[in-house]
């Protein structure tokens, strides 16, 4: 049985699980970043989200939680990655219509708004070997599922699968954006660390939702 609504406490679980999963993946993300950047993406991301998690333990409504996450990522991480992941959550916060409870369609629309904010800030396009290459397919999968009336668990699983495929596709790409752009053809052969982190995030959301359903909350 899938839930019809996503409540504030569920969003809280999804974000806290994201913090755990980014922490668990920090060595992998760091190793990926060492191939294309300066190797600090993993621990900087884990620290930024840990700062958000601390504040997320206090009760907040949905837009407040996304705003807290955005601010922590932007200001604790710094750099392009912090600003762009922060912009995603800021976009979600700004697009929130219902502060207490969301349908999957609401949630999907908020994710699309977050993705649009990332695009506007980064000026990158799909195929440029950035986090958008995982984010856009995941958002599209989520939107299709929401439109088709799929369950939340299945929708999040499909989004995670699409993010994985998108992140894997960055391996073959030549970077056209960010610092890795200046590696030119030498950037091919390595996964974009930002795209990897986005796929870890969607998996975290799916894990959190399975847990929510398992507990029958």
């Amino acid at each position: 049985m899938s839930r019809e609504k996503i409540a504030a406490e569920h969003i809280q679980s999804m974000l806290l699980t994201t913090a755990q999963q980014w922490q668990a993946a920090s060595h992998i993300s760091g190793a990926l970043d060492a191939k294309l950047g300066d190797g600090d993406h993993g621990h900087v991301l884990a620290n930024g989200m840990a700062a958000a998690a601390e504040q997320l333990r206090e009760p907040k409504n949905i837009p407040e939680m996304f705003m807290t996450t955005a601010s922590s990522l932007m200001n604790r991480m710094g750099g392009a990655a912090g600003a762009l992941l922060g912009s995603f959550f800021l976009g979600m916060a700004t697009a929130t219509q219902e502060p207490a409870e969301l349908t999957l369609v609401d949630f999907s629309a908020m994710c699309s708004a977050g993705c649009a904010a990332v695009k506007r800030r980064s000026r990158a396009e799909t195929g440029d070997k950035t986090l958008l290459d995982a984010l856009e397919p995941a958002i599209h999968a989520l939107a299709s599922c929401a439109e088709a009336g799929a369950s939340i668990a299945n929708s999040l699983q499909e989004a995670a699968k699409a993010a994985d495929a998108g992140a894997n596709a960055t391996v073959a790409m030549t970077a056209k954006h960010g610092r890795a752009k200046f590696l030119g053809e030498r950037s091919a052969g390595h996964m974009d660390p930002g795209a990897h982190s986005v796929s870890v995030m969607f998996h975290a959301w799916h894990i959190a939702w399975q847990d929510i359903e398992g507990r029958g909350v």
Binding site: D40, N75, R76, M77, G78, G82, A83
Partner: peptide, 8 residues
């Protein structure tokens, strides 16, 4: 931070 722009 080292080689990373400050946040907004």
């Amino acid at each position: 931070e080292i080689f990373a722009a400050p946040g907004p």
